[in-house]
Design a protein around this nucleic acid. Structure first.
Length: 815
DNA sequence: CAGGGGCGGGG
DNA sequence: GTGTACGCCCCTG
């Protein structure tokens, strides 16, 4: 019997002869692709019966039928488990097929003797990895013989499969894909009528663009084929030849792969790039996923979205902006609007677009390589396949981490909440972090402190979790300082959730120590440290998240209550020590040194830390020569984090602003951009204010050209299908009346004109509008003001003042 | 004031 | 696939 070791990349299951069979794809240490097949694992779930009920024999006879499929209980075991830290006698119910598990559960869930059912929705392949202790991207050992199944790679029918250590796949083969499509007039994506013009591929020392229109070129990376059909077939061949472990693209879940798939279908091409000859699969409506058996498809956009979020440090998440921010490299500058015309009439100019295409693929590749260490670390910590890492939200990462750890504590997982429960939970809100309102103004010599991982350390140090909440053994000992309610957490026994979060915290501390010693930063360690932090920080949100299995409002409330308690103590002590407090929010405090030295700040931190419980710790975050703080009460929603700091290197850091959206008028976009520029670069709020006032006056005087007030909105469906007629639908109707063909995807351009009634009644088409027509008040109040409101707020200038003064001065000019 | 609809990424 | 978005904003009725 042969023994092999391989790094697990992809895992799936199929039903063969009525049995579920696990297929694991990976690469061996000597670089060969392999598939390991295991048919020994049976699906199951848990029943917790009511006390004194013996239903084992009754459960053994249960079966369910659905769509000509019969599912049976194949065995029942008594299982001594724990549920929320309490011992329970559960039944472990084995079922013939994974799909039968929820069916069987449906049969038994309403029995009087059944208290609850659990783990009936843990995906079969994940269940397999959890129970076997197998971690993707790391070394797995299998023993077995050649299976004889039809595969592109050798396959082993395994007798035995086990984790072989933490050794991780060092250099996965990554191939990036990007397509360019025919798209005259910048219409919505239309896979039916618009062909793919070229496909760009980039890998290590590998550059290729395939296209189906010939032109003279000296570029070796360009390859010509005869038609779009040949293009897709050639793409298939190239993927097979390259044998990637990972295929990546930018928004490739949402665009490139669905597009390639649709075009392949049109030509009836089998897109069987899976290592088992299975076809590319596109699934999901809202959240589209493209997957290939045996090859991990990483949509790097998704991971970047999750890592940096919208409205974060990166202004926009399009490939150009993201590449510049993360790689210092922009896209090739071409006018995409021209592509269709170039394709039809100027083939000699196509090469420019090939360059663009290849470069996009290269950027996606580089972004993937840059983020890969972080994704791999998350795989190793959470234990789910690489494919899922970019596609799961924070809460699901936490949840799968807990699910994976649960068996180590013999814990049965909680159920997912049902719809009504979710709806109820969504209504509930609770008090968040403590905010020390800053006195507006400019400050010098600012020291910033924050609690290292405040909420995670509170959960660990105060033993907060649904399982340790209000235990019978410690009634009312050390109540959480909540505003209302009496919550305490077991003082005798550490809960399993606090234990695993403390483990995350201590692992991270060890890594930080290691990195500190060396001085040089190993990128792998940085990635691990960041991933541990990310996961630990997500626990608090998870406890208060309405879709969470281990949702616990009491726990979430207690976490923020202890947070407020500790930050307020720091603020009190800082005042006692003679610092003046500028601003504080949740886990951070901004102090003015007031003549003290940074050494005094360091000593202050040490003093605080001596008295903090458990793993809690205050850190000295940094020194800033100056900063502007703002009282930023926004309605009764409470204060929002808003400040601008000048760093020692002269860089300006702004927190708490939003960016404009695509469907705003140019005038709003321009004003926001310019105001930011003036404020950040010239550090001159008055100049910015003056600039906006001038723009407002220009609008009132109709000096702003019509193009600048055009609003662009995309029509999403046929005009008749709209239940409510918004401004853009009203404009679409005007277009239709003029005989223009409008439908889903058409960009509707309109302006809001003077007149009475609702906005939709004041809509005009740009070509029918003159400068005098647009409604200045609409553009001032609905476009200009909202776009700069938050910026001026942060600078201590009320934007209402802005209009009032502007209108007064306007009034003045009439008098 | 509730609820419908658009947006993002891609071309 | 033993599962699926989401949070924010504007506008209408």
């Amino acid at each position: 019997m042969a023994k092999i070791r391989f790094y697990l990349l992809d895992i799936t299951y199929k039903v063969k002869e009525g049995k579920p069979v696990i297929y694991m794809f990976g690469r061996t240490a000597d670089g060969k692709q392999v598939c390991v097949i295991d048919d020994s694992f049976r699906p199951y779930f848990y029943i917790i019966p009511r006390k004194g009920e013996d239903i084992r024999e009754k459960v053994e006879k249960v079966y369910a039928e659905k769509k000509d499929e019969r599912y049976e209980v194949t065995g029942v075991e008594l299982a001594k488990k724990k549920f929320l830290e309490n011992e329970v006698n559960a039944l472990k119910v084995f079922v013939s097929l994974p799909k039968g598990v929820p069916q069987i559960r449906d049969v038994v869930k309403d029995w009087d003797a059944v208290k609850s059912c659990h783990e009936y929705d843990i995906l079969y392949v994940r269940r397999y990895m959890i129970d076997k202790g197998i971690t993707p991207m790391t070394l797995v050992e299998a023993e077995g013989e050649e299976s004889g199944e039809r595969m592109k790679i050798p396959s082993i029918k395994a007798e035995k499969v086990e984790q072989a250590g933490e050794d991780t796949l060092k250099e996965p083969r990554v191939l990036a894909v990007d397509i360019e499509t025919y798209n005259p007039g910048g219409r919505a994506v239309d896979t039916e009528s618009n062909p793919i013009l070229m496909i760009g591929l980039h890998g290590k020392n590998y550059n290729k663009v395939i296209t189906w229109k010939t032109f003279k070129t000296a570029e070796k990376y360009i390859e010509f084929v005869k038609s779009e059909l040949d293009l897709i077939s050639r793409f298939k061949e190239l993927v097979n030849e390259y044998k990637p472990d990972i295929i990546t693209g930018y928004f490739s879940d949402g665009f490139d792969f669905p597009y390639i798939n649709a075009r392949a279908k049109k030509y009836k091409i089998q897109l069987d790039i899976g290592l088992d000859y299975s076809e590319l699969r596109i699934k999901g409506r809202n959240q589209v996923q493209a997957s290939i058996t045996g090859i991990v498809h990483v949509d790097i956009f998704k991971f970047i979205l999750r890592s940096f979020g919208r409205g974060g440090e990166i202004e926009s998440l399009d490939l150009d902006t993201v590449s510049e921010a993360l790689l210092g490299e922009k896209k090739v500058d071409v006018d995409m609007e021209e592509l269709a015309d170039v394709w039809d009439h100027h083939p000699e100019k196509i090469e420019e677009f090939c360059r663009y295409n290849l470069h996009d693929a290269k950027l996606a590749y580089m972004l993937c390589m840059k983020m890969l260490p972080n994704m791999i670390e998350l795989v190793k910590i959470v234990g789910i396949p690489l494919f899922d890492i970019p596609r799961l939200g924070y809460s699901q990462l936490v949840e799968w981490f807990i699910i994976r750890q649960a068996p180590n504590f013999n814990e049965i997982c909680m159920e997912r909440p049902h719809y009504d429960e979710v709806r109820e939970r969504r209504q509930k809100t609770f008090l968040g972090g403590f905010v020390y309102e800053p006195k507006p103004g400019l400050y010098n010599d600012i020291a910033v402190f924050d609690f290292r991982s405040l909420y995670p350390t509170i959960i660990a140090s105060h033993n907060i979790s649904p399982g340790t909440l209000n235990c019978e053994c410690c009634v009312e000992k050390e109540l959480a300082p909540t505003e209302e309610g009496k919550y305490w957490f077991c003082k005798k026994k550490k809960g399993f959730i606090p234990t695993i979060i403390e483990d995350l915290i201590t692992r991270r501390m060890r890594i930080k120590e290691m990195m500190g010693k060396d001085g040089k930063k190993d990128p792998m360690l940085v990635a691990r440290e960041q991933s541990l932090k990310l996961l630990a920080n997500s626990f608090y949100g998870y406890l208060g998240f309405f879709n969470a299995r281990w949702y616990s409002l009491e726990s979430a409330k207690s976490v923020t209550a202890w947070g407020r308690f500790h930050i307020q103590r720091v603020i009190e002590k800082a005042k006692d020590e003679g610092f003046s407090v500028i601003y504080g929010d949740t886990d951070s405090v901004f102090l003015a040194l007031d003549g003290k030295k940074t050494d005094d700040a360091v000593k202050f931190v040490e003093k605080i830390n001596r008295k903090l419980p458990g793993v809690m710790e205050l850190e000295f975050d940094g020194y800033y020569p100056s900063g502007l703080f703002v009282s930023a009460k926004m309605g009764d929603a409470g204060a929002k984090k808003k400040y601008a700091l000048l760093g020692e290197g002269g860089e300006i850091e702004i927190k708490g602003f939003e960016t404009v959206r695509r469907n705003w008028s140019f005038v709003a976009k321009d004003v926001q951009k310019d105001v930011l520029k003036i404020v950040l670069k010239d550090n001159d709020p008055k100049k910015a204010l003056k600039y906006v006032k001038k723009m407002i006056n220009d609008l009132r005087d109709h000096k702003v050209p019509v193009e600048k007030v055009v609003i662009h909105t995309q029509l999403q469906k046929e005009i008749g299908d709209y239940a409510s007629v918004g401004p853009h639908v009203a404009a679409a109707k005007l277009m239709k009346n003029k005989g223009i063909d409008v439908g889903p995807g058409t960009i509707i351009k309109f302006i809001v004109a003077k007149g009475k009634g609702r906005i939709k009644d004041k809509v005009k088409l740009p070509e029918d509008a003159k400068k005098e027509d647009y409604d200045p008040e609409y553009y001032i109040n609905n476009q200009i003001i909202p776009s700069v409101d938050r910026i001026f707020n942060a600078l201590g200038i009320d934007s209402k003042e802005l209009t009032e003064k502007a209108s007064q001065s306007k009034l003045g000019s009439f008098l």
